[in-house]
Design a binder for these strands. Sequence first.
DNA 1: TTGTAGGCGTTATCAC
DNA 2: GTGATAACGCCTACAA
Lengths: 342, 342
Amino acid sequence: MKRQTIKDVAKEAGVSTAAISYVLNGKEWKVSPTTLVKIKDAIIHLNYIPNFSARSLVNKRSKLIGVVIPQTEEHSQLLLDNPFYSEIVSGIESELRHRGYHLILSGVNKGEGYLDTTLQRDLDGAIITGIYYEPFYEELKKIKIPIVLIDSYIRGGNFKNIGINDELGGFMATKHLIEQGHSKIALVTGTIKKDGVVEKRFLGYKSAFEESGMLYNPDYVFEDSVSYEYGVKAGRLIAQQYPEITAVFATSDMIALGVITGLQELGKHVPDDVSLVGFDDIPISRIFIPQLTTVRQDIKLKGIKAVQYLLQAIEEDATDDMEKMILPLELIQRQSVRRITS
Amino acid sequence: MKRQTIKDVAKEAGVSTAAISYVLNGKEWKVSPTTLVKIKDAIIHLNYIPNFSARSLVNKRSKLIGVVIPQTEEHSQLLLDNPFYSEIVSGIESELRHRGYHLILSGVNKGEGYLDTTLQRDLDGAIITGIYYEPFYEELKKIKIPIVLIDSYIRGGNFKNIGINDELGGFMATKHLIEQGHSKIALVTGTIKKDGVVEKRFLGYKSAFEESGMLYNPDYVFEDSVSYEYGVKAGRLIAQQYPEITAVFATSDMIALGVITGLQELGKHVPDDVSLVGFDDIPISRIFIPQLTTVRQDIKLKGIKAVQYLLQAIEEDATDDMEKMILPLELIQRQSVRRITS
DNA sequence: TTGTAGGCGTTATCAC
DNA sequence: GTGATAACGCCTACAA
């Protein structure tokens, strides 16, 4: 069966293509009831499916959304094995499909741009997760379509931001540890970049100390990449060189998992020897043994909200009232923290 | 800056649009060296980006590939939190981008079809992972574009299959356990469907017994869904009701992880009390404690190969010589198996 | 070698 | 209410 076009439908129904177009686009009131029926019949009968390329050519609406997630440096493969990203993509996809859009998933090569893609495909909008270098955002600002930045503190004309209160999250985690009697609390984290989420969590970490009238120890801040592997390294380091540390706050669950492993390798156990709080509440955190106490954010919801936010901007170019959408946070207590009395 | 079209370039270069089109499509020999230069300059100068919608409209090539992965029943969200799928998507995306294609990622609602999407977007091809109900494949067969089925034993006119030797995998795992002195070996697995990968692995499990002159015990086959949750259940069940079982072969790592947890909940430890072999070698298997002994397949490679296979069919509608592409398997020995002497 | 013109499937503006 | 018809951006015979 070859492709059925609007003309075929017109012929079948014995009307003009314009009429078809009307009913296809919900302007059924421009058509008499009789022809409406004929047209609908013909559409079903011929199993007509509109061609989006043609559509997007004329009215510049592709119903296509670009989704960008980070990738590995070496092989430029998507960081989908990071549960955080895979979950957020799930959320985005389900909502998008629900709303009649399709999603083009991709990474962005360092140095390359995203402008090409958006123009080539006539993207209606884009959702960006992860942190990139400055020039990337500069380029993004030149693009005229609405863009939602997830977990970024960067502002721009066509940007919409959605995220959590990272500082509060850092505060909650650290506070909890302090309340459980800990005072020598390490921070293990990805690079603390200006205006990055990590910086905010770090701020929260510090203010929890302040609030308790204590001082945080800069020596206890371990900063590198946000990855399981770095967590392992940090865990080993702590076990070897900082035996006095009784607790650590890891700014992501992936790191936390690594810390557990690193600690364990050298005979230190969580939570018996060291308590641990993570961040994100990715699915493995519930699976891992011990189960991770962590600051939970609803990642899937984040994806869904990002879509709603974006489509709102696209469909009803609304008077962008909101500054930034903030999602809730919750401390989930599981097995990785032990109360101590010194 | 408004969109630059081929006409703008033509004007800028002082030639006709046809000439532009020629050089854009690699038919530079149809154009004199002088104009070639002028055109190239103009393209760069104007920062011209071709519009794929227009292109695909005329030559029916969208440079768009559909990628389908399974989703949850309830919320119809992608099973991207299953590391197997997220990894394979990574592989697919990187190779696709490399080759100048974009990917539309989506799930398929039960009952709904995929034909619409392929027609709407003029997809050049599709890659399908996961198992679906019969009607879905029937519909797929009607689509005239090349389709790569990953890990499926279903054949069809426009289908290309890529996978592993599942039976061999099941055999390797079970054989290993037998060699380590085990004989009461349970199988924990997703539903054993006719022609599914799981059935083949089950076959391998049985033939390993046969080869050793033993009989497998049907009571030791635990079959339900391929999920962490079911693994937990099965683990509990084994710990409670089948204390004689000393080893289990789980047909996926996700299940295996669940089994460990379920066992552990009831005081049984891996590998001290029960040995365990998984399947897939997803990243967590190396992270989890104990590290999982498993049948490794290169998931990322699978995605990459799937793309190459597909594009070969698309670009050089080759005389489909290959029946099915089979990728290698390897037993990775880590910490979840203990040798016993009875 | 270069340019003109028709058409891909849709939408939208007009007259009728 | 309805139906031609001109775009949209690009490709490709076909002429020149």
